[in-house]
Design a protein around this nucleic acid. Sequence first.
DNA 1: TTGTAGGCGTTATCAC
DNA 2: GTGATAACGCCTACAA
Lengths: 342, 342
Amino acid sequence: MSVSIFDVAKLADVSISTVSRVINGREVVHPRTRERVESAIAQLGYKPNAFARGLMLHKSEIVGLVLPDIHGEFYSEIIRGANQQARKMGYNLVVSSAHDGADSYSLLVTLEQRSLMDGVAIMISELTDRIEELLADVRIPFVILDGDVKDQAYDSVVIDQKRGALAMMRHVVGECGARRVIFVGGLETNVDTAARLEAYREVLGENGLTYDPADVYHLDYQYDTAYRLAKQELQRWVGADHCVFSANDEMAAGIVAAAGAMGVLVPSELAVVGFDDTRIAQMTRPALTTVRVPMSEMGARAIELLCDRIEEPDRPATHIVLEPELVVRESCGYAANRLKTL
Amino acid sequence: MSVSIFDVAKLADVSISTVSRVINGREVVHPRTRERVESAIAQLGYKPNAFARGLMLHKSEIVGLVLPDIHGEFYSEIIRGANQQARKMGYNLVVSSAHDGADSYSLLVTLEQRSLMDGVAIMISELTDRIEELLADVRIPFVILDGDVKDQAYDSVVIDQKRGALAMMRHVVGECGARRVIFVGGLETNVDTAARLEAYREVLGENGLTYDPADVYHLDYQYDTAYRLAKQELQRWVGADHCVFSANDEMAAGIVAAAGAMGVLVPSELAVVGFDDTRIAQMTRPALTTVRVPMSEMGARAIELLCDRIEEPDRPATHIVLEPELVVRESCGYAANRLKTL
DNA sequence: TTGTAGGCGTTATCAC
DNA sequence: GTGATAACGCCTACAA
């Protein structure tokens, strides 16, 4: 079978303790002995058995990342950041995502069940009662990603969604002069959508614009769905001082495309803005005004927090708030308007 | 500390073997005993220790996926498919990708070093001598993804790149009537690029078009880079019967955008086609004619193959070839031309 | 049907 | 500095 620490010990003519010592390099061994052992290891191509090691150390050097879904650029960037950070801290990353009905909570359960993960970062996107209940059962260190979980006892990294949405709405209404804003969001239970919608209503109020429930749509964050909706509703939306505020770039891109297909000029006949600043935002014509969300950093910070906690379990809970940033491009009509004014 | 099989045994007033039996459900235990044990397990919230288990069973239920990089839609889809399949087969997926200079081979080495993975799927995108050498050292079951590795001893799943590229070139030259084709690919060492370039030359020859090395560009598969290149070269490319064949959709999208910015009409003044059929292809205006690569299926098949081999190590090597599919949209000018002809 | 005991490959704690 | 040896938590003949 596989070569074990015994084989190395035998070949180097030492005890297994000594072999263990040179492997872990903690205690001092005689240079000559060390050399013998090392050459034996090389000669045999010996690799310590990770299971046995984990059994002693209670550590696998594996951390998990649980996502609601991994469709699209957004999640891919989070994975990227998380993966990079994990590697930097000497861990491997297990990525899991829900799909086909199974939500990320049931996923988490099956994952943690028989798992060797040292810890897990959990992205919460839907508000459910089950969450707190579920989290209470998680035995390994974990951090919450993006979920606006009330319990401050958990480590968490969140985006200041509301602030980003406020900035966008104020830009659209205040600076671009929109008098009517149509909101296209995700499901109502989605935490991000909720925060953005809140900002939406707030800024409407600030500016004396009436809030019309008929101007609020709840979709699924997908390009196609938004495209179809827009094709159908566009006639009702058009207006030089009207603006569609989409809760992500993909839907915004879909809406812009639909406008193009129907001969509606963006932004002059209808402004459209997005959220996230995924690459689509720059690829859309006109390029999308949007809010940059530091996705990859979100993943990285989460893993960093997680690994820190694994190393130091009794540390007080840390909460990281990442600031989004307004990115003004063409689809809001700001630049065009300014030119006109000058 | 944590609750072990002993605690369960004690509470249920049986031996640990019996507990083990009810957990693994292989041997028969008396219903009454089983019930006692199960209730003890539930009461204690006992979870078998995965390390100890792995030590005995030589199995972690974890498989790895090593990618050259996880930028962009392309890899994200592979991960998606792989993850889904892994879960379906009762495994967890560890995703790792190279970045910042570290290539996926050195990554693989560090990964496999002290790893608990039962097997690993390795995506090979660059042709290097080190590959075979490296693979020879991998001790755990593995499958090759996309890499055109000569050694038929390995399980592999590849896309028939050449066939896809041939179909595209024949469409562009044969059906759309292009008389000059500009090729924009990835690095020369990239296996996909190599295959596509081969098809490119072949079809040029078939149609009596001269192969001009100056019409072949090697970039990095990124939108921005292609955008910049196009801005600079576009004047030399323009032509009603000219076509840019980009080796992926992202670069094609960049080129189309550059054309738009410079007032060059696609496809009438210059056709542009892509490869992969990522979502960008549909979002670009005009929508990209491209070759659909079954990305998510590629990931899924690779994991399936891998898990099969883990379960049955001595099975003969399997090679899966996935067929790409030509997707005709607007950017090649085929539809427009046909209308003109009618 | 159930219990006993040995072993999986390490690391940690002792003596020497 | 180095070497026995006891854990670690589980599975599995073998015995009862």
